[in-house]
Simulated scan of single mutants.
Amino acid sequence: MLPPAVRMRSSADFAQTIRRGARAGRTTLVVHGRVSERPGVRVGFVVSKAVGGAVVRNVVRRRLRGLVMEQLDTVPSGTDVVVRALPAAATADYATLGADLRSALSQSLRRAGAS
């Protein structure tokens, strides 16, 4: 579970990160990263019905949360990140999701200038 201080909850924050952030896509997910003026790191997840039913979406969301927890140390403070799962995430294994997340996260943060 992500600590409350790390969770992105406001739909306005999601929209701003997706619209103004740097995007990096992979076969299973898309990562949007944006440098914000707030201290700390905030992370949000978007797992739509296109991914699957409620059970599948929750499994994908839990896997992504765990993977993001492993990567939090690599994300610089003052960064907002939105991870959007694609339908291929439903059938991907944990290792594939992890590789895609690490790759897309580093590329997104590099493009956003959050080094």
Score class of each variant (00 low, 15 high):
residue 1 M to V: 04
residue 1 M to I: 04
residue 1 M to N: 06
residue 1 M to P: 05
residue 2 L to R: 10
residue 3 P to C: 13
residue 4 P to S: 05
residue 5 A to H: 15
residue 6 V to R: 01
residue 8 M to N: 10
residue 8 M to H: 14
residue 8 M to S: 11
residue 8 M to Y: 14
residue 8 M to L: 15
residue 9 R to S: 10
residue 12 A to R: 13
residue 12 A to N: 08
residue 14 F to L: 06
residue 14 F to P: 01
residue 15 A to K: 10
residue 16 Q to H: 15
residue 16 Q to E: 14
residue 18 I to T: 12
residue 19 R to V: 08
residue 19 R to P: 08
residue 19 R to G: 15
residue 20 R to S: 13
residue 20 R to H: 14
residue 22 A to M: 05
residue 23 R to A: 10
residue 25 G to P: 14
residue 26 R to D: 03
residue 26 R to A: 07
residue 27 T to L: 10
residue 28 T to L: 01
residue 29 L to Y: 07
residue 31 V to Y: 07
residue 33 G to L: 02
residue 33 G to Q: 02
residue 33 G to K: 03
residue 34 R to L: 13
residue 37 E to N: 13
residue 37 E to W: 11
residue 37 E to Q: 09
residue 38 R to T: 13
residue 39 P to N: 14
residue 39 P to S: 15
residue 41 V to F: 02
residue 42 R to Q: 15
residue 42 R to W: 12
residue 44 G to S: 11
residue 44 G to M: 06
residue 44 G to K: 05
residue 45 F to Q: 11
residue 47 V to I: 15
residue 48 S to P: 01
residue 48 S to W: 00
residue 49 K to Q: 12
residue 49 K to N: 07
residue 50 A to L: 02
residue 51 V to N: 01
residue 52 G to T: 04
residue 52 G to K: 03
residue 55 V to H: 04
residue 55 V to R: 08
residue 56 V to M: 05
residue 56 V to T: 13
residue 56 V to C: 01
residue 57 R to M: 03
residue 57 R to F: 06
residue 58 N to G: 03
residue 58 N to S: 10
residue 59 V to F: 08
residue 59 V to D: 11
residue 60 V to N: 05
residue 60 V to W: 01
residue 61 R to G: 06
residue 61 R to L: 04
residue 65 R to S: 09
residue 65 R to H: 13
residue 65 R to C: 14
residue 67 L to Y: 08
residue 67 L to H: 10
residue 68 V to K: 10
residue 70 E to K: 04
residue 72 L to Q: 04
residue 73 D to R: 14
residue 73 D to V: 11
residue 75 V to W: 01
residue 76 P to R: 11
residue 76 P to Y: 05
residue 76 P to H: 02
residue 77 S to I: 13
residue 77 S to C: 15
residue 78 G to W: 09
residue 78 G to I: 05
residue 78 G to K: 12
residue 78 G to M: 08
residue 80 D to A: 06
residue 81 V to K: 05
residue 81 V to P: 00
residue 82 V to T: 03
residue 82 V to N: 06
residue 82 V to S: 08
residue 82 V to Q: 11
residue 83 V to R: 00
residue 84 R to E: 03
residue 84 R to P: 00
residue 84 R to L: 03
residue 85 A to D: 01
residue 88 A to E: 01
residue 89 A to W: 00
residue 89 A to I: 00
residue 90 A to K: 00
residue 93 D to I: 06
residue 93 D to V: 04
residue 94 Y to D: 12
residue 95 A to G: 07
residue 95 A to S: 10
residue 96 T to A: 14
residue 99 A to V: 08
residue 100 D to P: 10
residue 101 L to C: 07
residue 101 L to N: 04
residue 102 R to K: 13
residue 102 R to Q: 13
residue 103 S to W: 09
residue 103 S to P: 02
residue 104 A to T: 09
residue 104 A to K: 04
residue 105 L to A: 10
residue 107 Q to H: 07
residue 107 Q to W: 02
residue 108 S to M: 02
residue 109 L to C: 06
residue 110 R to D: 11
residue 110 R to M: 05
residue 110 R to W: 08
residue 111 R to K: 15
residue 112 A to R: 07
residue 113 G to D: 07
residue 113 G to W: 11
residue 114 A to R: 11
residue 115 S to G: 08
